[in-house]
Write a protein that binds this DNA or RNA. Structure first.
Lengths: 143, 143
DNA sequence: TATTGTTATACTCTATAACTATA
DNA sequence: TATAGTTATAGAGTATAACAATA
């Protein structure tokens, strides 16, 4: 083991840190990690099951249960798609939108705080590089 | 939604990206995410259940099952601690060390590749900033 | 009394395979 | 035939609460 961390190790540890924050804030909003992730993805717009499972990187069958439980809790609803009777659109309820809004605000605040002590220039550079690295990642979280 | 991503969103998306890589490479090494994380943490040295659960951010009771399954698969062993008859030390077997070594090498390669197209100067700066941000994160992954 | 670790229990999450209904 | 989604099943992961053994 070296005394200075490489880029890969840094990214893994940042991931660990963000995951734990995600879980902690989720608990406070009564959301599991998987639920919070799904609601964040649906913040932008409603989606069909296939598209949503693709964005989240889950099998469609896994998503069925996730949506079932969230629908049971009143966070999302399935709606019929008139043009295609096989399909459904999953969208946020008012309660779901409210929960994800609180989650998003708290997580953003905590994450921004991680960078608060950095010089503004370093922070901006870090953000720019980050943006390049994640350019192709599905919009699982947005501003 | 803006056209440029903020720092918080960038960190969440990077987390999503790293998690998916973690899972993908884990599958190739026949390791679940939780197992890979545990083995990585034990790479440095053996640990007691309490310390290990602290490092991983899990309840001790959750760790019991995780270690049970890994021990069943021959990846780790529990060993008695002579000085304290309540305690056990969890350490990697040869098979566990081998699996985690392959996992570590592949993940590091894939993560480094994410930065490969960046100018060397930007990459170095990114790594330096990352190192500051994760300074207090437990050593769940090292070089 | 405090700490180490386990057990019992209950849920959530996830994948694979097989299925139905519609396009 | 291909696509959208579900069901059935099995296993992993996790937490809470209660417990035993040792310090």
């Amino acid at each position: 083991m070296q005394e200075t961390l490489g880029a890969a190790s840094g990214m893994v540890r940042l991931t660990f840190l963000v995951q734990n924050l995600y879980a902690e804030i989720g608990r406070g909003c009564d959301l599991t990690v998987a639920q919070a992730q799904m609601l964040c993805t649906l913040t932008d717009r409603p989606m069909g099951m296939a598209e949503l499972s693709g964005s989240l990187g889950l099998e469609r069958s896994s998503l069925t249960g996730l949506v079932d439980r969230a629908e049971h809790r009143g966070l999302v609803v399935r709606e019929a798609v008139p043009q295609d009777r096989r399909a459904v659109n999953v969208s946020l309820t008012a309660a779901g939108a409210d929960a994800v809004h609180r989650f998003h605000a708290q997580l953003t605040e905590r994450l921004d705080k991680l960078l608060a002590d950095l010089p503004a220039r370093e922070r901006d550079q870090f953000t720019r590089t980050l943006r390049r690295i994640v350019a192709d990642v599905p919009p699982v979280f947005a501003d």
